[in-house]
Each structure stands twice: as structure tokens, then as C-alpha cells.
């Protein structure tokens, strides 16, 4: 084999030997690609469910205030996210060294969905944008070695999807007590995200398409905030008191 690889090939057998080697390599890469695509699909599904869980718990109709519920949602979310991280851990050996870049396209979809879920949980807990380093840290083994290098592009594209979930959260929360303040916080937050991502658009493929979705989400939140502002403008009472009156009139 060694000789057939480093010299010209004089016999048919030598040619066949060489191609036999290629076949093994191509089959191996193809099998690996299939395994990674399957894992990526699993991650996508789990991440989507995690996002639903976060919404569910964060907008539950309990007596608690929004913050308490958000924290409980985040806590439950972390449990789900750890399950996903275990799948990433199991993919480590398939993505070592130059294998990561070879198969990046197969891994990206699941990874971005995971980042969307992770950043949503992070937002519920901290009301901030999760940093690149923090995301990479969730994808490291105990010794702190990354399973694979996180690309800036996957990080940004995942975050970009977060704004859509925040919009949904804001709209659901808005008619609850304290929801207006929350909506207005989220409005400011999403506005900042949009501004921060704007300058990166020409350098990150696919980001500007997602920016236009972010823009739509932002306008939906703005419209919701507007409705509330207009509605309370007719009364001269602070919004807390208005809320109480409404609550009393309904709860009967």
C-alpha cells in the first residue's frame, strides 16, 4: 500500500489498491456525516421543546410576579439544556481537529437552535445577552476543553433567532401584571440587539435575512407597547392602580 501511494502505479492491482483506500475514506466520511446530521436533528428537536418549556413556565398563570416565574423557567430550562450538552459531548470525537470544519454544515442547524434556547434561558435569568465565551463554555468538557470551536457566525445566527422568541414572550406577558414594564424592557433589549448586529451583516452570511425578521419582531413589540400607552393615556392614574382596578373588576 505504502509503495502504491508514493509512486506511480504500474499495474491494475496497484490502481485498485489505491481506490480501495479512497472508498474506505469516502464511506467513513459519509457515515460520519450521517451520524452528525442525526445528532443535529435530535438537538434541534430538544432545543425547540426547551424553548416551549421556557415560554410555558415563564407565562404560567400563577400569583407570582413575572421575575419569579422567569427564574423558575430558566432553572427548568437548564435541565433540558444539559441533556442537549450531553449530545454535543458525544459528538466530540467525530469533530476533532480538522473534522469540525469538514462537517460544519451538518452541525450548524442544531447548534444554532441550541444557542437560541440557551440564550433565551440566559435572558430569563439575567436579562442580558449571553456572551460568546459563555456559550462556548457550555460546550466544553470538565477540563474546559471545547468539544469543537464555536463559530462567531453560529453564535450570531442563533442569537438572532432569540429576538423572535422574546417577541412572543413580550406579547404573552403584556396583559399580565408587570407585563408592560417587561414588554418595554424587551423592546429596548431587542432594539439594542438589532443595532449591534447591523454592522456585522455584511460580514456574516445569512445574518441580514435574519435581521429583517428581527426588525419585524421589534415592530410587533413596539406596536404592543404603543397600544398600552394609548390605552392608559385616557386615565390620570398610575398604571399600578389601573391594573388593580381591572383585576378587581374581573376576579369577581
Amino acid at each position: 500500500m505504502a509503495s502504491s501511494q508514493t509512486h506511480s502505479l504500474h499495474t491494475k492491482e496497484a490502481v485498485i489498491d489505491l481506490f480501495d483506500h479512497f472508498r474506505e475514506e469516502l464511506d467513513e466520511q459519509n457515515d460520519r456525516r450521517e451520524r452528525l446530521i442525526k445528532s443535529s436533528r435530535d438537538i434541534t428537536n430538544l432545543s425547540k421543546r426547551c424553548i416551549f418549556l421556557l415560554h410555558r413556565v415563564a407565562t404560567e398563570d400563577t400569583k407570582e410576579d413575572l421575575e419569579t416565574r422567569a427564574l423558575r423557567a430558566a432553572k427548568q430550562g437548564w435541565g433540558k439544556l444539559r441533556d442537549i450538552q450531553r449530545i454535543f459531548a458525544s459528538m466530540k470525537c467525530e469533530l476533532e481537529g480538522d473534522l469540525y470544519w469538514r462537517h460544519q454544515k451538518s452541525v450548524s442547524p442544531g447548534l444554532q437552535e441550541y444557542i437560541e434556547a440557551l440564550s433565551f434561558a440566559h435572558y430569563l435569568e439575567h436579562e442580558t445577552l449571553i456572551s460568546y465565551q459563555a456559550v462556548q463554555q457550555t460546550l466544553c468538557d470538565e477540563a474546559g476543553t471545547p468539544y469543537f470551536p464555536l463559530t462567531i457566525s453560529d453564535y450570531l445566527l442563533g442569537l438572532s433567532d432569540l429576538t423572535g422568541e422574546l417577541m412572543r414572550y413580550a406579547i404573552s406577558a403584556i396583559s399580565r401584571k408587570g407585563g408592560r414594564a417587561k414588554a418595554s424592557d424587551i423592546c429596548a433589549f431587542v432594539r439594542h440587539c438589532k443595532a449591534d448586529f447591523e454592522g456585522m451583516c455584511p460580514r456574516v452570511r445569512g445574518l441580514s435575512k435574519k435581521q429583517s425578521v428581527t426588525n419585524q419582531s421589534l415592530q410587533k413589540i413596539e406596536d404592543a407597547a404603543y397600544t398600552i400607552a394609548v390605552r392608559s393615556s385616557e386615565y390620570d392614574l398610575p398604571s399600578d392602580i389601573l391594573d388593580d382596578i381591572v383585576a378587581r373588576s374581573i376576579s369577581g
Partner: peptide, 11 residues
């Protein structure tokens, strides 16, 4: 949200 607005107005 719309229903809530009506409830709000009415109450």
C-alpha cells in the same frame, strides 16, 4: 391582548 384591552376599557 385585544380581549384584555376590551376588559380594561370596560372595567
Amino acid at each position: 391582548k385585544k380581549i384584555e384591552e376590551v376588559v380594561y376599557d370596560v372595567s
